[in-house]
Amino acid sequence: MNVIETSKLTKYYGEARGIIDVDLVVEEGELYGFIGPNGAGKSTTIRILLSLIYPTSGSAKIFGKDVVEYGAEIKQDIGYLPSEVFYYENMKVKDLLNYSASFYKKDCSKRILELVEIMDLDTSKRIEDLSYGNKKKVGIVQGLLHEPKLIILDEPTGGLDPLIQQKFFNLLKEENKKGVTILLSSHVLSEVQRLCNRVAIIKEGRIVNVEKMSDLASSNYSRFRLETKNPIDKSIFVLDGVSGLKIENNSVSFMYKGDINTVIKIIASIDLLNLWVEEPDLEDIFLHYYE
């Protein structure tokens, strides 16, 4: 079953482009990544799915039901964590969580306790006294407390320290094992790589590609940066799989795709001061992979 299905989903804000002809299909039980640079249309898509805003044309269905017509009904089973969390100030954490739970037709009190425990949250504090990271934790608990069948996360990890991020991702994986579908939007590739099975790549409002994470990883680029003792000859790096080669004085950088041993052997023959092999950032992906 398709949990999310959009068809030619388009949104303009007046003249300004939001998204254009977005076709997105997320199947039940998937951990689906939604990746693209800031302003590409990730939040716009998500806000339409939640009927916070309405599409200019096209349609979106969740659980097989139109999001505009059946918005409130389908939201019984959606958990949402926005990129920036804002809550009613002068409300205590536990009041906010109880208020959040009061919208659902089930008793969430047990799950709240579990999640608060996992996220290590002090529920007696006032929201306005919380740090950004702690507010985000409230957001996580608030989004998961009703045991939703679909979890939508918009840039969820900003402000979370690595430890909590790990806990949070484990929590998501556990939910996913129970059959929960997850849509995770992000501009950080590694985040999506860690978690997702499939990924849609959005650029300037359009979906440019949908990939299995394993395919994306196997055809992955690495970014090499070298610092050498002596100036080196450009020809040494002329081989298949190298792109974007830049040599300035004693520093070399390029993108590489292919058998890693080949390039390592070449590098081994050079007198190095330093070497970095990094995951390409999104910009590199777009530059080298989608053009």
Binding site: L52, Q76, Y80, F86, Y87, Y88
Partner: peptide
């Protein structure tokens, strides 16, 4: 104004309600 609309309307509640 307080940007809580994103919280409230992600809940199962219609604008009318």
């Amino acid at each position: 104004q307080d940007k809580t609309a994103e919280f409230l309307f992600a809940k199962p509640v219609t604008r009318r309600q």
